[in-house]
């Protein structure tokens, strides 16, 4: 993963510059048995045990309706859990909202703005809501936040005239009005074009490099793979798995696929080359490609050919988080009923 060095770098900087990094608890978010049952009896989140380490870019993954947003709302003290405990930055939520949330920036379920105010005035309004923010530095911080998300040119425009992408950026800007320890981003690239998505991902990496832990929910698997160091997968209100992205993707390792009518002969060659977990079909066989790298791959192909195997197709199909998800849940990545 390309993002791993960022995290290491971030940790290093925290240790070097921060006054008391050792005193801070290592987990930014920790929940145990977190459960939310809504009044209608619907179980939205069911016994969630989630651990988000400090300095990580944590991907919170699951189909629409799997309980991600409800979890985030509980973490942010907007709704009270039916049972279980949620701890954010070492303090229980929602009891410690006043002490914890000034250190947290959040984008929850899309941006929400005052349409009759300019982008700049919207940020000033949200900043005024935080009693720990200094009114004397407000104008400067608002300008910096606008600049950071690339909205300087549109700062004076009424928010109702913004496109969805611009609204999303303004929402991000309000999360970045202060230096934050934790950034919670719920589907931050929703409604953005590919260029906008790339910019948001770059911003997430930049913020993470400064030492901010990022908790990013998404239903886009490749988004998580691209920016996250850690991930958790939700399905129907339950946590399916959590760990580093490398671990999770590793669960769905790439498989070597050979298409040939000579299955038996091919099988012998593959076994000699230490390809394990072989599965054979009528004109196809595949196996775990752990021992196969880019150099040995052509040799393996040559070996098959020289053994008289008529190779119709040959290649490695890469494992993805999606494979891992399907393997873990035994279902597709669709909207949960």
């Amino acid at each position: 993963m390309t993002t791993a060095p960022h995290t290491e770098q971030a940790r290093g900087r925290v240790a070097a510059v921060g006054p008391t990094p050792a005193a801070a608890p290592d987990d930014v978010i920790r929940t145990s048995g977190l459960t939310k049952r809504f009044q209608g009896g619907q179980l939205a989140v069911d016994g969630l045990d989630l651990t988000v380490p400090r300095g990580s870019v944590f991907g919170f993954l699951g189909p629409n309706g799997s309980g991600k947003t409800t979890t985030i709302r509980m973490l942010m003290g907007l709704i009270a859990p039916s049972s279980g405990v949620a701890t954010v930055l070492g303090a229980p939520m929602p009891q410690s909202v006043g002490a914890v949330l000034p250190r947290v920036g959040a984008l929850i379920e899309g941006p929400a703005l005052y349409g009759f105010l300019s982008g700049r005035d919207n940020l000033a309004r949200f900043d005024a809501a935080d009693p720990t923010s200094d009114p004397r530095t407000r104008a400067r911080r608002v300008t910096e936040a606008l600049d950071r998300v690339g909205l300087t040119a549109a700062a004076g425009k009424k928010a109702r005239a913004y496109s969805l992408g611009m609204k999303q950026r303004l929402g991000l800007a309000s999360a970045l009005l202060q230096p934050r320890e934790l950034l919670v981003l719920d589907e931050p690239t929703n409604g953005l074009d590919p260029q906008g998505m790339r910019e948001i991902r770059a911003l997430v990496r930049e913020v993470a490099a400064e030492g901010t832990t990022v908790f990013l929910s998404s239903h886009l698997l490749d988004e998580i793979e691209q920016v996250c160091t850690h991930a958790a997968v939700m399905s129907k209100g339950r946590l399916v798995v959590q760990g580093t992205v490398a671990e999770l993707a590793g669960r769905a390792q790439g498989r070597l696929v050979v298409r040939t009518p000579d299955v038996a002969a091919a099988r012998d060659v593959l076994v000699q080359h230490r390809v394990t977990d072989l599965r054979t079909d009528e004109a196809r066989l595949d196996g775990l490609a752990t021992a196969v790298d880019e150099e040995s791959l052509p040799r393996l192909c040559a070996a098959l050919v020289s053994a008289g195997v008529r190779v119709h197709g040959f290649g490695v199909e890469r494992g993805t988080l999606e494979d891992a998800f399907v393997a873990l849940t035994g279902e597709g990545f669709d909207v949960a009923g």
Binding site: M76, G77, L101, P102, I108, F126, D127, A129
Partner: peptide, 9 residues
Amino acid sequence: RYLLVAPAG
């Protein structure tokens, strides 16, 4: 929700 997570109290 954004006022409350600011947190406005």
